[in-house]
Design a protein around this nucleic acid. Sequence first.
DNA 1: GTGCGTGCAAATTCTTTGCAATGCA
DNA 2: TGCATTGCAAAGAATTTGCACGCAC
Lengths: 147, 147
Amino acid sequence: MDRTAVEGALVARGLRLTRQRRAVLAVVLDSSSQLSALQVYDSVRTVLPEVGLTTVYRTLALLEEIGAVRRVHGDEACESVVPAAAAHGHSVVCDTCGLVEEFTACDISPIAAAAASETGYAITDHFLQLTGTCAACISDAGEKAVG
Amino acid sequence: MDRTAVEGALVARGLRLTRQRRAVLAVVLDSSSQLSALQVYDSVRTVLPEVGLTTVYRTLALLEEIGAVRRVHGDEACESVVPAAAAHGHSVVCDTCGLVEEFTACDISPIAAAAASETGYAITDHFLQLTGTCAACISDAGEKAVG
DNA sequence: GTGCGTGCAAATTCTTTGCAATGCA
DNA sequence: TGCATTGCAAAGAATTTGCACGCAC
């Protein structure tokens, strides 16, 4: 979801486009890593120093509600958010630099079917998150090994 | 991992089997739903009233470390734990009653390959969690619909 | 002008830490 | 007996709430 789409979604709900919301939105959508509420707060304050932490929390909750951001699950930082580009996408987190990308080629139907037969559940939803090493970090590691 | 295996893993590390650890272990392994630290605490106190919350936190961290419990990711309760039966398994959470089961038939290699080609990452790990309706709740719903 | 949204500060909740006492191996 | 482990209490961190003011519409 890009900036225009998010702003459209807010307006469509009868919500207001305030400076604070624009600033939070800009920070989150520009980020290529996962951000905690406090990190978003710090970042927003560099461009809008008078913003309140409360507003950041409320705005992040709002953005999550309309599907503009997604939460990622880490060993510790479970409440961090990443921008959500696609309506249904999953995050791939780099274990070296923290870069987060999204992939959409997600067909878990064979897995859902296997899980259904193993447990008897009717599967309705899933949460999938991959961890790995991003192209840049792979390349860095290669250069270090060579040099 | 059953009780014996967990206790063996603790002993193998030179750790002690205290009353508190046994009690926490019993509560967690007996549970068929996800439990937060505070829920575990409450439950343990019914059989061991003098236990401290601190001990519950420390024991849960320990159990997670040895792979006896797994964390589940929910919209809110991100720190809840479920017993981990298999070394590599995933949780299936019932959206009606909260029952959690585990399935092991997890072959995400096609998805990992697709994600790798889409993002350029070298995938090393994954976190997958399914949501659905358990057999009992499906059956209940059917009965209600009929009755 | 109306009322949603904001910022402050306080309250609340969850989790961790320091330390003396306890009890398992 | 020795030392890991415990429980208390206090600290710490993160998040939420109440309320008067300001600003988007």
